[in-house]
């Protein structure tokens, strides 16, 4: 069998000299180190791509789609430009066929009011609430790939929308302070300190019992590391 053939003899590698042990140790530590920085644009040396090219006409169509899809409240300054910039950068990372499909969707959906017989105006020229109604109809009409275009466009527009600071604050999602506290807690636990009562999460909801879960988790923690899941009878 071919797989039993022996590999060629090993020769010394010819690449640049290997890094020293302290250099390798420092890199390994960097990989694992929690800084608690949590910044939106982390300074890890990574360069984000420039926005992908879009013609002015396509940008107008895209802005019309953004206005139709995004909620009217909270009002966000420069909404269309900020989502456009983010999506155009993301497009650089996508497969070329997906990018072509996205551009086609911008054309097709901009003309949705016309080919649905709802208006002689294009989506970009309609009030956002009217545009939203038409797009919802298109998605629910089960028009195969065209309905899928609405789903894909919604993901492309609303994911960046719900990543904006103003919108996250509006819906009460404030993870940064919580995460910083948890980074600090992990440092304490890793240093051998015991958890305090205030380190537990919740319970927030009425009727939920914290006690039995905590008991079970503590009991489970005594189990030898690994093994398979321990089934808990009700």
């Amino acid at each position: 069998m071919a797989s039993h053939a022996e590999p060629a003899p090993i020769v010394a590698p010819t690449a640049s000299p290997p890094p020293t042990l302290p250099e390798r140790e420092a890199l390994a530590r960097q990989m694992m180190e929690a800084t608690g920085e949590l910044s939106r644009h982390p300074g890890d040396g990574w360069i984000m791509a420039d926005p992908a090219p879009l013609s002015p006409a396509l940008v107008r169509k895209f802005h019309g789609l953004i206005r139709a899809m995004c909620p009217p409240e909270p009002r966000v300054p420069d909404l269309e430009a900020r989502i456009e910039d983010q999506v155009r950068r993301m497009m650089r990372y996508m497969q070329p066929l997906i990018v072509m499909g996205f551009k086609a969707a911008l054309h097709v959906l901009d003309l949705a009011p016309v080919w649905r017989g709802k208006s002689l105006k294009r989506l970009q020229d309609l009030p956002p609430d009217v545009g939203a109604r038409i797009l919802t109809e298109v998605e629910r009409a089960r028009l195969g790939p065209i309905s899928d275009m609405v789903s894909a466009a919604r993901a492309a527009v609303l994911a960046p929308y719900y990543d904006l600071d103003e919108v996250l604050a509006h819906i009460g999602y404030t993870p940064v302070e919580f995460m910083r506290r948890r980074v600090a807690l992990r440092r304490r636990l890793a240093a051998g300190e015991a958890a305090l009562d205030g380190d537990h999460i919740g319970p927030y909801a009425p009727g939920l019992r914290a006690d039995n879960l905590a008991d079970i988790a503590v009991a489970a923690a005594r189990v030898e590391p690994q093994a398979k899941a321990k089934e808990v009878a009700p």
């Binding site: 180190e33 982390p42 990574w46 983010q86 993301m90 996508m94 990543d163």
Partner: peptide
């Protein structure tokens, strides 16, 4: 590295996920 992770999705999708 671990210190670069954050709770923001949009940029993280491009950084960490195949084809965003």
């Amino acid at each position: 590295p671990t210190g670069s992770f954050n709770p923001y999705m949009t940029e993280s999708m491009s950084r960490l996920y195949r084809d965003s």
